[in-house]
Design a protein around this nucleic acid. Structure first.
Lengths: 219, 219
DNA sequence: ATTTGGTGTTTTGTCGACAATCTGTAATTT
DNA sequence: AAATTACAGATTGTCGACAAAACACCAAAT
């Protein structure tokens, strides 16, 4: 899979990762209040580490905090989803552009083999492709941009929000094969080092994805 | 001026604002270590609030922290500057696109009057335009996008880094009048609700700005 | 001379307690 | 009865102290 692995060293890290997972997976419902005391007893750690975890979650836009009042998990709204995808379109478009310029030949080769292996999975209709495969694809292109800000904003910031929307809206739907074709053309543009085209295709890809999930939201 | 005003309520807020200002202005040099104890005695406040302030600075990419070691102010590098402007190009380009779609007629009118007043200043050669005026212009377009993520990322996140580069590289240089013309054409595109063009012009504007500051960096 | 190991100091991470602020309820006033 | 104020409870913000990890220095060995 070669997917990334962030390891926790301090207790705050562990609390942060756990809390983030529970929010993304909907174990802690969207819009619900986060009590520092309750969480600290729950996780068996001090309030200080819970506070630090919540602060980090706030930086990821996963919780909102008001001074002297407390923190709430963000609530999922159609507007929020659209705004999120607008930022994704902008940022990942740029990532594709930079990836076409900066990825090594070896990385591009790996990306092609990844795509081929996913092609088999699509044919045999193993549709868990959606989450894992799609994430892996986008993740590699983001890394390929070699831009630290871009990588940080997307990987540490927005992607968990994207996943939160996907998980809690139950995105296991279709759009697997069409998205796969789009992935293929993006990789082709990157292979040709056509940064202009790569950005444009990536932006369209994300726009399609937005329309797809938006339609599902209204149904 | 109508520029934004963020007000501090908690002690952590005050520490955060103060520390951020001292970092951006170079009072605390780039690359230097941030001792929690030293800062807490210095600011006459507990270590906990300094820690929280530092955590927030880390989320803004103004300091880097390593577990069990400590935090350092980021150091300014040519690569970092380029990467920063790549993200700006992407994000502010999208902001201009959305502003062309979402700004109210009144906001567009205000933007035009702002530009006219700055035109007078440019003619009379009051060149403090650069910092204040340029910031005000970009700030209004970002707000005009009406996209909460975009606004937060740029205003709370990247802009202080941009200012840090500008201040510490001593950017009082030329490029005032040419940048002003670019601003004018962007506003015109927004007035015509031409989102495509607005994005394109904004991206070019930021590219020019990047080349300008990059040239200054190498001299 | 370089490396290795140990020891002491300094800095960060974590904790529990206290202070300040907010929220909801109930009593009081008009 | 409606609005306002006072109070009680609970939650967050801040603090100082303790625990654990990293760093610096010196000694010893190869």
């Amino acid at each position: 899979m070669a997917i990334f692995k962030e390891q926790a060293i301090t207790a705050s890290d562990k609390a942060f990762f756990r809390l983030r997972k529970e929010i993304v997976d909907g174990v802690i419902p969207a819009g619900s209040k986060l009590s520092e005391m309750e969480l600290s007893t729950n996780y068996a750690v001090s309030r200080a580490v819970v506070r630090e975890a919540i602060n980090r979650l706030e930086a990821c836009h996963l919780v909102e905090r008001k001074a002297n009042v407390g923190a709430r998990v963000v609530s999922l709204t159609p507007d929020g989803l659209i705004e999120l995808y607008q930022v994704r379109e902008s940022l990942e478009g740029m990532a594709a552009r930079l990836a076409a310029q900066n990825m090594s030949e070896e990385e591009i080769l790996d990306l092609n083999t990844l795509l081929n292996s996913q092609s088999d999975e699509v044919k045999t209709a193993e549709l868990y492709y959606q989450e894992a495969g799609d994430l892996d694809f986008h993740y590699r292109i983001i890394q390929g941009s070699k831009n630290a800000y871009l990588i940080s904003m997307l990987v540490n910031g927005l992607y968990h929000l994207v996943r939160m929307y996907r998980v809690q809206l139950g995105m296991a739907g279709p759009r697997v094969t069409s998205a796969f074709d789009e992935h293929k053309s993006i990789v082709k543009a990157i292979s040709l080092r056509d940064s202009e085209l790569a950005e444009m295709l990536m932006r369209r890809h994300i726009m399609y994805s937005k329309n797809n999930i938006k339609a599902k939201l209204q149904s």
